[in-house]
Design a protein around this nucleic acid. Sequence first.
DNA 1: CTGCTGGTTGACGCTTACGTAAACGTAAAG
DNA 2: CTTTACGTTTACGTAAGCGTCAACCAGCAG
Lengths: 132, 132
Amino acid sequence: MSADSGTWTITELASQYDVTLRTIRFYEDRGLLTPERRGTTRVYHPRDRVRLALILRGKRLGFSLDEIATIVDMYDAEPGEEGQLVYLLNQITRRRADLEQRRHDIEQTLHDLAEVEARCQADLEKLRTGSA
Amino acid sequence: MSADSGTWTITELASQYDVTLRTIRFYEDRGLLTPERRGTTRVYHPRDRVRLALILRGKRLGFSLDEIATIVDMYDAEPGEEGQLVYLLNQITRRRADLEQRRHDIEQTLHDLAEVEARCQADLEKLRTGSA
DNA sequence: CTGCTGGTTGACGCTTACGTAAACGTAAAG
DNA sequence: CTTTACGTTTACGTAAGCGTCAACCAGCAG
């Protein structure tokens, strides 16, 4: 039963997100996850689960773990002092620019793929009517 | 003059796209670029330039060089036989799915960032009006 | 001839992100 | 008591994507 009391074991988390135990422990090594320890065993709370999900999303987007670390840490940053807040806002602006560039690249690529596809289907048509 | 006769040297290409010579040669090693050889010197044609641009776009999107290779090769695939065309169309479908997933991830992340930003600005407001 | 400038090929080095044992602890089940 | 399941740490291995020499060649300026 995974939904015991809102905590999970490492194997449960691994199978839920389809990653290996090694991977999860590695993320902890890099400071991305900080599960509770019950004895020597790791216990993961909802917070850890969310962070893992964010990490994996970052990975799908091709960010390095270092970049992901700074992104994920932005999410649960304490209010802090003014300097911190301003810094954070700047980081956000940079990240947004990055992401918008990516989105643009993606749309460009999708457009290109559509052209290639059209060409393909035209060639296919020609082949079939030609040999008919 | 870079636009000599529609060809470029490796240094020209490198500075245009802001990559190192090593990188360009490495891409050739991996079969992504196939410049002409004039003696021992590499001569890059428009085709190579386009491919380099596509490679870099792929990199910005976080694709591995292997993935990029298959993508870029789709662009200048010869018409070929029916089996090839069908295969290509399948590849395109897969790529599209992948890209749409990424786009979704990006939009999600942008949305999240907007929330963090709002929180930040609220905190900032509170700080400033509080200390005023 | 000398010395730049710009090109070439190795080949070793380095970081990232894990994979893959090896060797051990613990607790329930047969 | 032994097996089985599940957890742990330590540590070496590896593939990708270049950085960074080193050592060489060719052409042109002075």
